[in-house]
Design a protein around this nucleic acid. Structure first.
Length: 366
DNA sequence: CGCACTTGCCCTGTTACGTCA
DNA sequence: CCTGACGTAACAGGGCAAGTG
């Protein structure tokens, strides 16, 4: 596939794709190999930051698995809204707007170091005291629960805590699925049998989803706290986050593929158009000899303003890196054949094929 | 300091189960 | 009721990083 032969199309000349624009953000251990940033969604920030990992200390000790998912129907509806995050085929808005290194602004960091000063929106460690203080080992977590809750996520949490508290009244209507899952899980623990798939309740999923939005990886403390809050095994929480990350990545891959497909189509179309334009220029050359008496021209591009300055073949390029290379496809003296192919990794220039007399606004005087 | 070993987590792929049309 | 598609919980295996002796 031929790429980057651009002869000055006003419509598409201004960096239609933005290659590499976000490559630094995407440059992670799970890049696409193509290393192309996708700026489709304004909030898309794949955060697979491989910065320092939390020290792993705790093991997955089992917790009681009496599933408590008593939910009121209306709150169900409201919270399940948070779960629907993959509707758009283009934009993934599942992740936090600002990638957070694992050790920075991390709830666990708060637990270790702060005095209750650092509250971010949704924090799985900010549990209501009614739930947390039962375990004295989580006093630090309980202390955080006094942090001022934050807007929407906080209200969500508050509501959720109403029906997720262990001392809930029996008058609460438990979701059937959760109830069944709970009983199955309990049996499972008792029997110690092989895996039995149990579906998480909507509330559990929504809560996990909110936590995932906040941070897509878990520290051991967060995992334990979440498991305690949701009455799941830590292993379940861990698996859920693993699967959730996998789903996010899969979705992103689909989006990337779709985007690359569109890029390919666009470039193919542009290539076709440029070939046509080239043919027209050649026809013009034969029909208008005077036009071709102009000296051969080399197009050079200013890396800063992305404009093309024209110089004669005897003059030096503005910068070595900005010098366009010769298009091997056309070896004639046609001036247009001096335009060239820029690699995908470079910023797409705006070429002005007919600007033999055009002067550069920045006055590049080499 | 280097090395082997352990531990714990993550990623990837797969399996198995639940739900629904 | 049966069935296939789909979503997803759970698992397996390998890699990686940190801790430890």
């Amino acid at each position: 596939m031929e790429l980057g032969l651009s002869l000055g199309d006003a419509g598409t000349g201004s960096k239609p794709f933005g290659f590499m624009e976000k490559s630094s953000k995407l440059a992670s251990k799970t890049n696409l190999g193509f290393c192309m940033g996708l700026s489709i969604g304004p909030n898309h920030t794949p955060q697979e930051d491989d910065q320092d990992k939390e020290k792993r200390s705790n093991s997955d000790h089992k917790s009681d698995n009496t599933n408590t998912s008593a939910a009121e129907a209306e709150t169900n509806k409201r919270k399940s809204m948070a779960e629907d995050t993959t509707d758009s085929p283009i934009q993934l808005d599942l992740l936090p707007n600002t990638p957070v290194p694992r050790n920075q602004n991390h709830p666990l960091t708060y637990l270790v170091s702060d005095n209750g000063n650092t509250s971010r929106g949704f924090d799985v460690n900010r549990f209501p005291a009614a739930v947390v203080h039962e375990d004295q080992g989580d006093q630090d977590v309980a202390a955080l629960s006094s942090s001022p809750p934050n807007s929407a996520t906080s209200s969500f949490q508050m509501d959720f805590c109403m029906y997720s508290s262990k001392g809930r009244s029996e008058s609460h209507n438990e979701a059937d699925q959760a109830e069944r899952a709970s009983s199955r899980a309990s049996d499972e623990d008792e029997n110690g049998s092989a895996r039995k798939k149990l579906r998480l309740s909507k509330e559990q999923s929504a809560f996990l989803e909110e936590s995932f939005k906040e941070h897509n990886t878990l520290t051991p403390k967060q995992k334990l706290a979440l498991a305690k809050e949701l009455n799941l095994r830590p292993r379940q929480v861990e698996v859920w986050f693993q699967n959730r990350r996998a789903r996010t990545k899969l979705k992103q891959t689909e989006v990337d593929c779709e985007y690359l497909k569109r890029c390919c189509e666009t470039l193919t179309e542009e290539n076709r158009r440029l070939h046509k334009e080239l043919q027209e220029l050649r026809a013009l050359k034969t029909s208008n000899p005077f036009y071709m008496q102009l000296p051969a021209t080399t197009l050079t591009m200013c890396p800063s303003c992305e404009r093309v300055a024209t110089t004669s073949t005897s003059t030096a390029a503005v910068t070595p890196t900005a010098t366009t290379t010769t298009n091997n496809q056309n070896s004639t003296a046609d001036p247009t054949s001096k335009t060239t192919g820029l690699s995908l990794s470079s910023t797409r220039p705006r070429f002005y094929p007919f600007s033999h007399t055009q002067t550069h606004p920045h006055q590049h005087t080499s």
